[in-house]
Simulated scan of single mutants.
Amino acid sequence: MAGYLGIKVLGITGTGLIDTAAKRSIAGSSLYALLVKRGQKFRSSKMIVKLADGSVNNINVKLADVIVTLKHLNIPLTFIILPNSSNNETLLGIDFIRKAGLIINLSTNTWLTADRPHVIYPLRCETVHTIECASTDVLRIDEGTMLSPPERDDLARLLQEYQDIFTQGEDRRRLRNIALIPVTTLLCSAALPPNTLPFEAC
């Protein structure tokens, strides 16, 4: 899921992207720059990090212990700063969600906190957008075996539509040269309030 929360760090208002797939919260490039500018102290650590592409790396990271303000809550949180990252967003991971007691209702695009269940807030979400794929060799031998009949039909239609870019490999299908297949992420759209920094970042 991808929804934005209005938060404050070091007194500066911005937004953080809720990421239920991230165990730990990540400071984006803008937030990191703000922390440096405000004289935030960092700790160094070595962590095993699994990236979105599935690769696992043992890397040196920086850690920043800060207070994140969300509405009435002041949440102590340790942000991870990944080396050599640029233009990445600030991700509010499972550690943040648990500490905040965050409850997210995707059916109504709202959220609330466990300590004040009667106060409901709208969830600001990413707008619908199209991304481009460029991948190779990503289909497994058992691809599709866990799909329901309607899902298999949808996959079959996709394979038929783009059959010119699917080729038979030695023992499995390979996906090659997918440069311009549009992948639409259907997420709710709502504008951020004025004067709010993209806290991908603070």
Rank of each mutant, 00 (worst) to 15 (best):
K50D: 03
Q40G: 04
Q163N: 14
A201E: 03
Q163I: 10
G101F: 06
T78E: 13
D115E: 14
L147K: 07
S30G: 07
L175C: 07
L197R: 12
I97H: 00
S44P: 03
G54Q: 04
I12C: 08
R124P: 00
S189L: 04
E200A: 06
L70D: 01
I75C: 03
L17P: 01
I18V: 14
M1H: 08
V138F: 09
I81Y: 02
D53P: 08
R98H: 13
E161Y: 13
D142G: 11
R140L: 13
I18R: 00
W111D: 02
H129E: 07
K37R: 15
N74G: 03
L187F: 08
A33P: 00
P117L: 06
A114F: 12
L5G: 01
A114K: 15
V49S: 02
N60P: 02
H118C: 04
L70Q: 01
A201M: 06
T167V: 14
G6W: 00
D53N: 15
R174I: 11
N88V: 14
M146T: 10
P76G: 03
L34G: 01
V128Q: 11
I67T: 09
C125S: 08
E143A: 15
N177A: 12
D115W: 13
N195V: 09
E143D: 13
S44G: 13
A190Y: 07
S29W: 04
P182I: 05
N57W: 02
T127D: 09
T108K: 15
A2S: 12
H118K: 06
S30H: 07
D153K: 13
A190C: 09
G11N: 09
W111R: 01
P150C: 05
C188A: 15
D137L: 10
R174F: 09
L123S: 00
I18C: 04
L34M: 10
R173F: 15
G54H: 02
M146S: 08
L5T: 00
K37D: 15
N177H: 14
G11Q: 08
L91I: 05
V36C: 09
R172K: 12
S25A: 08
C133W: 11
Y4N: 05
A156L: 14
Y32F: 12
I131D: 07
S189Y: 05
I165G: 02
S55Y: 06
I94A: 12
H129R: 10
L112R: 14
P76N: 05
S85I: 05
R98M: 07
I103H: 09
G3V: 03
G3M: 04
P193A: 15
N88K: 11
N58F: 02
S30P: 04
I97L: 07
C125T: 10
N58D: 11
L175S: 03
T108A: 13
G11I: 07
M47V: 06
V183W: 03
E200I: 08
R173I: 14
K8S: 15
L197E: 04
L180E: 15
P76T: 05
D19M: 06
V9G: 00
L34A: 04
A33K: 13
L35Y: 00
Y4P: 01
I59P: 05
V49L: 06
Q168N: 07
L112D: 03
S45Y: 02
K71T: 06
E161H: 15
A114R: 15
L112F: 13
R43C: 03
L17D: 01
R152H: 10
D95W: 06
